[in-house]
Write a protein that binds this DNA or RNA. Sequence first.
DNA 1: TAGACTGGTTTGTATAACAAACTAGTATGG
DNA 2: CCATACTAGTTTGTTATACAAACCAGTCTA
Lengths: 103, 103
Amino acid sequence: MKPSELIDLNPILTDRVRLAIMTTLYASEDPVEFNSLLDTLDLTKGNLSSHIRKLEEVGFVEVTKEFVDRKPKTTYLCTAEGKKELLSYLNTLENLLSKITKQ
Amino acid sequence: MKPSELIDLNPILTDRVRLAIMTTLYASEDPVEFNSLLDTLDLTKGNLSSHIRKLEEVGFVEVTKEFVDRKPKTTYLCTAEGKKELLSYLNTLENLLSKITKQ
DNA sequence: TAGACTGGTTTGTATAACAAACTAGTATGG
DNA sequence: CCATACTAGTTTGTTATACAAACCAGTCTA
């Protein structure tokens, strides 16, 4: 684990907001609603929307749109690849930590 | 460790390049030269220069400029606060990892 | 002493993050 | 019904950031 390898970290996940979104989705078995994310992460709707869009574009998040009680309801789920990449990202940083702290 | 706390991650350190710089400096007892960073991290000079500037502005890196053999020589050292913040940053992510992996 | 090299910094550009304004539809009140 | 307010987001415009190209001051070399 050389510092230069950090440059290879997935840029999608380096953003704090997207990391928080991914973590939330990772931790949930069930699909998570837009407003739920909005509450727990305390973002504006536009900001959340655009981050989610990016995560969807790279295939880390699966978006489902349906109508419930005649109202639109959008939910998000972490894909297998998203989980894999999140773990990989965090593992890289954990390795780094243990490298620089041990002795 | 809630996902929402990720939003508090120090934005200075979320950047991959700055994380790599800080790690390199953290690991070195001695001051590190500009060109050394340039080589190990494979960046352009302008890019490295501006990232270093930011790290200096927030007090994570100490910059020393001197002349050696009549040529300018700039070296960088990780400050105590820089070390503290780097560890804190990595610890936060490690906690997150252990949280989401221990089912 | 002209041209190339060193060790950076400044400047311009493309991308990214963010919030404000907007859209489409639903519920509520008079 | 018609207007007003609310829900559930998306689009658009602005600000900030990352990056590389161009630049600069000084040194070395032929």
